[in-house]
Write a protein that binds this DNA or RNA. Structure first.
Length: 547
DNA sequence: CGGGTTTGACCGGCGC
DNA sequence: GCGCCGGTCAAACCCG
């Protein structure tokens, strides 16, 4: 317990420093952005704001989460949204305060999906349920967007049944910035159980893959624009490639928030990264890193700078008409397929000419050496955040280093934990996109009822675990990181409350960057729910079992 | 009978 | 302009 308390203290300290640095950077950012925005067309700002000051506008353009929350609060209904607003403000003020709004998790659950939206602001509309949209400021905003975008969602055609009675207000999308998140995972079932409710609306044989591609749309809400495509990998039939597109415009089932939030976070990373990777800005996110986290491999190969397509065509269900980020959850051993693939992707990009892609592709591989369970869509919600942090860290320390150099160098000196954390802190605070990713991940916890856990995790790492049981929907086994339930997770993904011991474990993979575990939530509450069914009933039942 | 799936037709974008 | 291809529609079908 003493060690635990010490660790909590350290975590608090690190978090404080992160927040301080973030605030400083934020202020600098405002100073930079403010004059820049003043030069831009004022009518546009008028249309999209509701009396917010310039600072908030600037923040909205960069921080997708704050964008959605702020607007929701100011433009929409009253009480509920006031609380969203509180959360938004508090997130700006200190990020921790908003975690106290635990009881408002459902309220938060709705709007934060907006972070999938991009700087073009178009998918803001999606965050408003149809019924709330009528006559609201968002409507006029949307009308404005219609003029600007001239495009609708779905990209090709809006169903006739959705064109009437103002539904097209929901469908405005800027197709240029529509992000997709592709998830590769080993799964025997026809589709991964991501906790959401889907209805199949089509199936097609796509070129280059004998396996049919299935099209699903979200049926949790009638007007939800979210679609997903499911297709088996041509080269490895055991790998299921699920591509998500769009933003839920409704509160998600508890079991679905992790997946949705992570895909949203990934999309936000992709969009914000690509949007800030304009040629000449030098911001490039092309950091291929060899961060083996105890077998947890990931890499980020944002091709936006080189405008090249890093993924084998078989990886992508289709040529990426939209910017696509791929989360690789396949069980390929770090040292074999996944590594080879990532290396291949990184250095053999010429194999996939840029003409096949109009947008960049970003690939994140969360490969683990032992992933017997295939239904782990929730588990990587947290790891997405972890690895983003790690990636940021590596961006500073190992960016552009040859991947194999990192991988094949077992003698590579391991950073001490404090050094690593300090480096991670520095790296994290240096990247404004992380704010979105962090908030999204936190939101995923809050939204699914684990808010107490994450809130206390940051403030009091282990006290939070205990406190988590005081919340109605906490999962008991979150207090037992290596319980039977959690053992279904791949080892590399089990970071439940065991950051230090986990990190201290000798790792066969040399490139461990343990600092990322600092912000790892201690529980992965839904990751091990095994089911091939996505029905809410099933999810409820399983949740009840666990709680 | 209601809800989900199947499957051929249809549509629009894109390359040639 | 034509054909290919991805994506969607919707009637028919299936299932509990």
């Amino acid at each position: 317990m003493g060690e635990v308390r010490e660790e909590n203290q350290r975590l608090k300290t690190y978090l404080d420093s992160i927040m301080k640095e973030y605030k400083n950077l934020q202020m600098q950012f405002f100073d930079i952005v403010k004059p820049d925005r003043e030069q831009k067309k004022p009518s546009d700002d008028e249309a999209v704001t509701n009396g917010n000051d310039d600072r908030q506008q600037a923040e909205e353009s960069e921080e997708l989460v704050s964008l959605s929350l702020g607007r929701s609060a100011s433009s929409q209904l009253s009480e509920k949204d006031d609380e969203k607003n509180k959360s938004s403000i508090s997130s700006r003020e200190g990020k921790l305060l908003f975690l106290e709004n635990i009881s408002k998790e459902q309220d938060l659950g709705l709007s934060l999906d907006c972070k999938l939206s991009d700087a073009s602001r178009t998918s803001l509309v999606e965050t408003f349920p149809k019924n709330n949209n009528k006559g609201s400021p968002a409507t006029s905003f949307d009308d404005h967007q219609k003029e600007e975008a001239g495009e609708t969602w779905p990209p090709n055609k809006v169903p006739k049944t959705m064109r009437s009675d103002g539904d097209d207000e929901l469908s405005q999308q800027n197709p240029v910035k529509k992000a997709r998140v592709s998830v590769r995972a080993r799964c025997d079932a026809a589709t991964m159980n991501d906790g959401c409710q889907w209805r199949k609306y089509g199936q097609k044989i796509a070129k280059g893959n004998p396996c049919p591609r299935a099209y699903y749309r979200c049926t949790v809400a009638q007007s939800c624009p979210v679609r997903k495509q499911v297709q088996r990998c041509a080269e490895d039939m055991s790998i299921l490639i699920t591509t998500y597109e769009g933003t839920h415009n409704h509160s998600l089932p508890m079991s679905a928030t992790a997946m949705a939030s992570t895909t949203s976070a990934a999309a936000a990373m992709l969009l914000s990264g690509s949007s800030s990777s304009q040629p000449g800005q030098g911001h490039g996110t092309s950091a291929t890193t060899g961060a083996g986290l105890h077998g947890l491999n990931f890499y980020l190969s944002d091709a936006s700078r080189s405008n090249q397509y890093y993924l084998p065509s078989s990886v992508m269900p289709s040529a990426p008409t939209y910017p696509t980020i791929t989360l690789d959850l396949t069980s390929s051993n770090l040292s074999s397929a996944s590594l080879t693939s990532s290396h291949f992707n990184r250095f053999s990009s010429h194999t996939y000419p840029s003409t096949t892609s109009r947008y960049s592709s970003t690939s994140l591989s969360f490969s683990s050496p032992d992933q017997s369970d295939n239904n782990l869509p929730m588990s990587w919600a947290n790891n997405g955040l972890l690895n983003y942090a790690t990636q940021l860290q590596n961006k500073n320390h190992t960016a552009y280093q040859p991947y194999l150099h990192i991988k094949n160098n077992p003698s590579l000196p391991q950073q001490s934990l404090p050094d690593t954390i300090a480096a991670a802190t520095k790296a994290i605070t240096a990247d404004p996109n992380f704010q979105s990713a962090l908030a999204v991940a936190l939101k995923s916890i809050i939204g699914n009822g684990s808010s107490g856990t994450i809130a206390a995790t940051i403030g009091d790492h282990h006290q939070g675990i205990r406190d988590s049981n005081s919340f109605g929907q906490k999962l008991r086994w979150s207090t037992e990181p290596f319980s039977a339930a959690s053992s279904l997770l791949p080892q590399a993904l089990q970071v439940n409350g065991c950051a230090s011991s986990f990190l201290n474990k000798p790792s066969s993979t040399s490139a461990s960057q343990p600092g990322s575990f600092v912000i790892a939530p201690p529980s992965l509450p839904f990751s091990s729910l095994k089911s091939t069914s996505g029905s809410p009933k099933d999810n409820r039942d399983r949740t009840n079992l666990l709680s």
